[in-house]
Design a protein around this nucleic acid. Sequence first.
DNA 1: CTGCCGGTGGAATAGGCTTTCCGAAAACCG
DNA 2: CGGTTTTCGGAAAGCCTATTCCACCGGCAG
Lengths: 348, 348
Amino acid sequence: MARAPQPGQRKPVTLFDVARAAGVSQSTASRVINGSQRVVNEELQQRVLSAATKLNYTANLSAQTVARGKSTTVALLVSDIADGYFSSMAAAVMRAAEAHGLRVTIAVTERNVEREIELVRELRGQHARAIILAGSGYLDAKLTQALVRELQMFEDTGGTVVLVSRSNLPFAQVDLDNLEGARRLAAALVRLGYQSFTVLGAERTLVATHDRVQGFRLGLEGHGIMLRDDQILYSNFSWEGGFDAIQAMDESALDATELIFAVNDEMALGAIAGLRERGMRVPDDVAIAGFDDIRSLRNIVPSLTTVRVPVDEVGRQAIARAVEDGGRADHKVVNATVVLRDSTPRRR
Amino acid sequence: MARAPQPGQRKPVTLFDVARAAGVSQSTASRVINGSQRVVNEELQQRVLSAATKLNYTANLSAQTVARGKSTTVALLVSDIADGYFSSMAAAVMRAAEAHGLRVTIAVTERNVEREIELVRELRGQHARAIILAGSGYLDAKLTQALVRELQMFEDTGGTVVLVSRSNLPFAQVDLDNLEGARRLAAALVRLGYQSFTVLGAERTLVATHDRVQGFRLGLEGHGIMLRDDQILYSNFSWEGGFDAIQAMDESALDATELIFAVNDEMALGAIAGLRERGMRVPDDVAIAGFDDIRSLRNIVPSLTTVRVPVDEVGRQAIARAVEDGGRADHKVVNATVVLRDSTPRRR
DNA sequence: CTGCCGGTGGAATAGGCTTTCCGAAAACCG
DNA sequence: CGGTTTTCGGAAAGCCTATTCCACCGGCAG
């Protein structure tokens, strides 16, 4: 395609141009600019560098990727980038990636496996260095199978897959200590005097939610309190999920509840909105606790008791797993810490 | 580099492989798979397609970019992806981009021009189709010059630059009607009975903040109320900015204020926190209004009066500007609408 | 003085894809 | 039915870089 030299649409300057301007071969220019193993004469180096500066050269990343057969881009897959948890995670991952000279492209799965599979497929085409899968996880076993297959194909072509807080699959993982965090939270709440609980869980296939529910239960049991199955309401891992769960709750069940534990903060916030809608006050009528400690909690009154997830650390670890291509199926657990605030005052 | 065929590290299947498997030439395979202008025989199409499926072929995006000299990636530059406004914007842009078959890569500028310049430079190397610059804007005229130069070089190589709600520079723009939105807000507040105001502005060079302050002033003047310069406090376009501004306020000035207008919601939320710290209640002691209508407002009590910015529309328009490469220096204004809520009750 | 070696620049090739250009076969037309 | 288009595969050139391979240099030991 003979791109007509449109007015003001110069052809980008290539490495070849730089080489010519410096009076050296392309290979030499390449060696100077990207710093390969080979040494080049000091003087030639200078010539090349100054030519590059003069011409305002920037390496063509795609061409480099093709030539090297390996890219410097890692992909971050999240359910919803507008969600505070994921956007903080994205920020953390990007920060960590930069320290390794990596670029990050973010893709949104909208909590849809098929879309996710499609994305992984595309990413394979893009030769992404790694795929970091944060959040989501699905009910349909067959689709999960398909996803795993796709992820495996991705790894077959040399990429690394990193799962963040997700169902147990045969890939490198960064996990939060969801179980322990929730267990400690439960213990702390019991110590504050709470005795009857309702848990707002999310999709059961999500390792995160499952572990949080389980941990909470264990924490209660440790103090001799049993959590009945009908005290666990399953909904979605989102604000709406929390809101809807509360809307759907029996009047009597609600009255019997002293404290609601939502498996993440977004759900907790949705639940609070739902409670408000039903004319109930937090914490006077019912106490509430969440999980994650997302940034926007600083705006909530009363302040919300939660379990802090060190997103920065998670991001850092995810990138670390992504680059050390050695450690296939490597596992790293990040601790979570209980933060007691005003939404769960001491009782009695 | 003779990549040793590591166990389980197959070489990716290429278009050539597909062509061979289908018994056609590479050109034909290419034509079938990417749908070029040229028509190919129905039967060959089938052969190619089924071969591609069988081999699990995915096009190598980098190679396509190199070959086409043009990519399908647009870059979104934001100050801080963890900020609710920007993450919603990002979500909107990505949604819109997808409809056009474009990929989005997000980069974070951390409100730092040098970094921004650096990023634009890199993006030129990546042959991004377009750069969407959202937020930020700077004090230093020299650096702004440098940025503009870099952006122009980017356009010289065939990319498009789209500015979202940003200082007036010679590029395509999507603007909010900040002035009119703020003007209407002011008018509405006066009608509710408010008479003495404090405005929390942000960096003056930001077109957004300047227009919002200006619009608010005009709205007040329309009702015969003057806004004195000492009633405008300049700070940063962030939660901390709002918080700090309130912390730094004179006791007397604060007492004399009936309503605080922060030029964006994050600042307003920071201001509320600051007020709480100083023992003042909203709206009993002082009313407050923001701008943007970010998602997390749904969790705030009392609900916050604000001006809604239709982020989806903005994202859509930004992408529209990005693809129609014709309209250089094209300008689109998106309306903003006043949303009155509980943080500004009718007065007296 | 000769043969060999480490070092360094350049030519050539690889990498995966798109697109132009050719040529042959098919379709059309008088 | 001959000549002219049109249609549609395939070969080959090109996009930009990285890297291999080759050639040539001076140095060094024998």
